[in-house]
């Protein structure tokens, strides 16, 4: 085997790939190596003294960690489900043949995705004020609530408030991907179904959903990863208080507490959880190559 001999294509590819590869290696692989070493060190600051898995066993015993896991699961589960369902409905609505100004609807809805995360969080924080807050006022004026709800200041509601914002912020992305997916379904399929007299739900079940399966998976995995990694939204709205501390917030707050051993161990845990889902995403996306 002439292992080192490169084909003509490979030589060219190498030139084009190398710069990008080196930059990402420097900015991504090296930091990952660094944080993993830190998590196995006695003194994380100097990365000195091999601690084995001591930092991890300590982390697992810490009640804050199990709470962060539960919170991450809750935030991720509900926000992904909500954003997916809402985004899909929006996509179906916009994709309906008789609906006009498709581009306009799409870009208006897309605004909540495009605005800076800090603005998202700050504006919702301002909407969610308990006393004289606009969100409470709107709900009261349509009769959904009778007394003011302390959205961000009670452990009962804070997580739900943040989930609402995450759905609001990510549903447009689902809408976008799904409209693209729906447009790829050939019209003839629907036309022949119409001839058979199939209803909307029938078509949804037997044509639309199966044919958008792949893009659905990609979309959901993307949402999952974003939700697990979401930081600025929660940080600005509650700083992880009111029982809203997810893994991201735990890492940041441990770092703030000068607890680098714990911070690096929780970071590695977050990495493992993220990469678990990312692996599925990659498997789906790359299979064509």
């Amino acid at each position: 085997m002439k292992r080192l001999s490169l084909s003509k294509d490979e030589k060219k590819a190498l030139i084009y790939l190398l710069p990008g590869f080196i930059v990402t290696a420097l900015l991504i692989i090296y930091p990952l190596y660094y944080i993993i070493t830190m998590s196995f060190s006695n003194n994380a600051i100097n990365q000195s003294g091999f601690a084995g898995i001591a930092n991890y066993t300590k982390l697992f015993k810490n009640p804050q960690f199990s709470k962060a896991i539960v919170n991450t699961a809750k935030f991720t589960g509900f926000s992904v489900a909500g954003a997916y369902v809402l985004g899909y409905i929006l996509a179906l609505a916009i994709n309906r043949r008789s609906i006009k100004l498709k581009g306009l609807w799409r870009s208006l809805i897309f605004i909540s995705w495009i605005i800076p995360g800090v603005v998202k969080a700050t504006s919702w924080k301002w909407l969610f004020r308990t006393d004289g807050g606009m969100f409470n006022h709107l709900l009261q004026s349509v009769g959904l609530i009778s007394s003011e709800v302390p959205w961000l200041t009670s452990p009962k509601f804070a997580m739900w408030a943040i989930i609402i914002v995450q759905i609001w912020a990510t549903a447009p992305y689902v809408m976008l991907l799904m409209t693209a997916g729906l447009q790829q379904i050939s019209k003839e399929l629907y036309e022949s179904a119409d001839l058979d007299g199939a209803g909307f739900l029938h078509k949804l079940k037997y044509i639309t959903l199966p044919l958008t399966k792949d893009i659905t998976f990609i979309c959901i995995l993307m949402l999952l990863v974003w939700a697990i990694n979401e930081f600025s939204l929660i940080w600005i709205m509650t700083t992880g208080g009111q029982n809203t501390s997810t893994l991201s917030l735990l890492v940041y707050n441990q770092f703030k507490m000068l607890n680098l051993n714990m911070a690096s161990a929780s970071a590695v845990m977050q990495l493992i959880v993220t990469m678990f889902f990312a692996a599925f995403y990659v498997k789906l996306t790359v299979k064509e190559d």
Partner: peptide, 19 residues
């Protein structure tokens, strides 16, 4: 203390919200 403070705060919030 830096680790204790958020724990205390968290449960204070539970008590204050009546949960």
């Amino acid at each position: 203390w830096p680790e204790m403070e958020p724990i205390i705060f968290n449960y204070m919030q539970y008590a204050l919200s009546g949960s």
